[in-house]
Amino acid sequence: MQANTTKDTVRHYHDMGLLKSRKRQAGSRLYTEFHPECVERIDLIKNAQAVGFNLNELKVWLNDYYDGTLDIDKQMDVISEKIAQAQRQQVNLINVINQLSARHTALKEMKSDNIGKANIQ
């Protein structure tokens, strides 16, 4: 597959309206033909997901982006909100790391206290 993804992923993106296609009859079978732009779209979707966008967010503006109707100000707003969201997640992760580190340190101290007590006896 040209898009380096699975058929199920392509179907899912298509069902969500992220990919454009048309039906083509070949004998008794009906095939779905995807626009050549779909490979580029799939790459864009995968890259956007890698930086934190979900498919529902992409669905809102992807067609506007490709139609040229998503202006720069709107793109900047979308990216600014995603940056703010990532910064909130970063703060939450730092808090988790600090809490886990403190617990790990406390457990190490408890362990060394127990080892010291065992050696005294």
Rank of each mutant, 00 (worst) to 15 (best):
residue 55 L to A: 08
residue 39 V to F: 08
residue 51 V to D: 08
residue 75 Q to G: 14
residue 44 L to P: 00
residue 39 V to L: 10
residue 57 E to D: 11
residue 58 L to I: 06
residue 39 V to T: 13
residue 47 N to I: 09
residue 72 I to A: 08
residue 68 G to D: 04
residue 31 Y to N: 07
residue 58 L to S: 02
residue 75 Q to H: 09
residue 44 L to V: 07
residue 68 G to Y: 04
residue 41 R to N: 01
residue 56 N to V: 01
residue 32 T to Y: 11
residue 76 M to Y: 11
residue 74 K to I: 06
residue 68 G to N: 04
residue 77 D to F: 02
residue 63 N to Q: 06
residue 42 I to A: 04
residue 55 L to M: 05
residue 57 E to M: 07
residue 62 L to I: 12
residue 37 E to A: 12
residue 61 W to F: 15
residue 61 W to P: 00
residue 42 I to V: 15
residue 62 L to K: 04
residue 75 Q to S: 14
residue 43 D to V: 03
residue 39 V to A: 10
residue 57 E to S: 06
residue 71 D to V: 10
residue 32 T to C: 10
residue 67 D to W: 03
residue 31 Y to M: 09
residue 65 Y to G: 10
residue 36 P to V: 07
residue 46 K to D: 07
residue 52 G to L: 10
residue 53 F to Y: 15
residue 35 H to Q: 14
residue 77 D to Y: 04
residue 63 N to S: 10
residue 47 N to K: 15
residue 71 D to K: 08
residue 35 H to P: 01
residue 78 V to M: 14
residue 40 E to A: 13
residue 46 K to W: 01
residue 67 D to L: 14
residue 49 Q to H: 06
residue 47 N to G: 11
residue 42 I to N: 02
residue 47 N to C: 14
residue 29 R to K: 15
residue 70 L to C: 03
residue 76 M to A: 14
residue 65 Y to C: 09
residue 30 L to M: 07
residue 52 G to F: 10
residue 30 L to P: 00
residue 41 R to P: 03
residue 75 Q to V: 03
residue 70 L to G: 01
residue 77 D to M: 11
residue 60 V to I: 14
residue 44 L to C: 09
residue 69 T to D: 01
residue 49 Q to Y: 01
residue 71 D to L: 06
residue 55 L to K: 05
residue 47 N to W: 11
residue 33 E to A: 06
residue 79 I to F: 11
residue 61 W to R: 01
residue 62 L to Y: 05
residue 74 K to M: 12
residue 43 D to C: 05
residue 41 R to L: 02
residue 65 Y to M: 12
residue 59 K to Y: 00
residue 50 A to D: 13
residue 57 E to W: 01
residue 74 K to N: 09
residue 71 D to R: 09
residue 50 A to Y: 05
residue 29 R to N: 13
residue 61 W to Q: 01
residue 80 S to V: 06
residue 49 Q to V: 10
residue 46 K to P: 01
residue 54 N to S: 09
residue 47 N to Y: 10
residue 30 L to A: 08
residue 37 E to L: 13
residue 46 K to A: 12
residue 68 G to P: 07
residue 70 L to T: 01
residue 80 S to D: 15
residue 40 E to D: 13
residue 66 Y to T: 02
residue 49 Q to N: 12
